[in-house]
Nucleic acid binder design. Structure first.
Length: 281
DNA sequence: ATGTCTGTAGTATACAGA
């Protein structure tokens, strides 16, 4: 099963590239962030195109900002819009923003997340970011973490190795101890950063600012993560950043992250040992 | 890196968010 996450920075602006990418990479489950569409416009823009490709989908949108989705052609059950206790902004008790959607796909509980940016460490939005992450962590003790994947734009670089130059981040979000502690809490509960596990020493980014030739110089950040529970982590066969999707004309400022999983040991795909005729290479 | 892109309002350009 191929799972991917991509902050598309407007699904509508990315329409041709998104469809081409689906046809090229052929992911089974796709988590999207920053679709920036109301649900009705998502439906009219993407519904027929996705169904023609065999995808079911769940979209949670609000219009001009945010917006998350899950596409799946291996099942899409028990869709959840947001999570219990998810705070709003600016009023924590106010309406939730469109930043979280979950669904069960081929036995894996998949979450597409767009964590609040935080703006600056002194902005009320930063407190919102931390509260949002704390509320997310608070949900996990009640779920089967082993078969859970939290993925999306976390807006946190897990370590200094995940930014192009830590010295340039003196008073910035994405690298503060508080944000990293929030991420650490998710990992303590049993979720693994599968890209870093696969490539412990690789210079590896998923986001590059549009300005100043940042992509060309590889001045980026790794803020789009796949955090997987133990059962899923044990099935990771490949994990990579699709830098091709950041090249060329009219790209998103984020690249997709792609993870290939072996079939589940208890899956119904077929015999573990192929017949002799298929085993020969 | 702060050099751009996106959406909105509204019809040209300014603004906000990232």
């Amino acid at each position: 099963m191929r799972l991917a996450t991509w902050n598309v920075n407007s699904a509508k602006a990315r329409l041709p590239r998104l469809l081409d990418w689906l046809d090229t990479r052929r992911p089974d489950v796709v988590c999207l962030q920053e679709t920036k569409l109301p649900d009705a416009e998502w439906e009219t823009t993407f519904g027929a195109e996705l169904r023609a490709r065999g995808y079911a989908y769940a979209h949670v949108g609000e219009g001009r900002w945010n917006g998350v989705a899950i596409l799946s052609r291996v099942g899409l059950d028990d869709v959840a819009d947001g999570f219990p206790g998810q705070p709003g902004f600016p009023d924590p008790a106010g309406p939730r923003e469109a930043r979280a959607v979950a669904a069960t796909c081929a036995g894996v509980r998949v979450w597409s997340l767009y964590v609040p940016n935080g703006r600056t460490p002194h902005d009320p939005h930063f407190g919102y970011k931390l509260a949002w992450l704390a509320a997310l962590a608070a949900v996990l003790p009640a779920v089967d973490v082993s078969r859970t994947v939290l993925t999306g734009d976390m807006n946190i670089a897990p370590t200094d190795a995940d930014v192009w130059d830590p010295a340039k981040f003196g008073d910035s979000t994405h690298v503060t101890p508080q944000e990293r502690a929030s991420l650490g809490e998710l990992q303590r509960i049993g979720l693994t950063d599968v890209l870093r596990r696969r490539w412990p020493d690789e210079r590896m980014f998923t986001y590059w600012d549009y300005r100043a030739g940042a992509f060309h110089q590889d001045l980026g950040m790794r803020i789009d993560l796949v955090l997987a529970g133990a059962e899923v982590t044990g099935r990771v066969r490949a994990a990579w950043v699709d830098r091709q999707a950041r090249k060329g004309s009219a790209p998103s400022d984020h690249a997709p992250v792609v993870v290939d999983l072996d079939e589940a040991p208890d899956g119904d795909i077929g015999p573990v040992v192929p017949p002799p005729s298929a085993r020969r290479r």
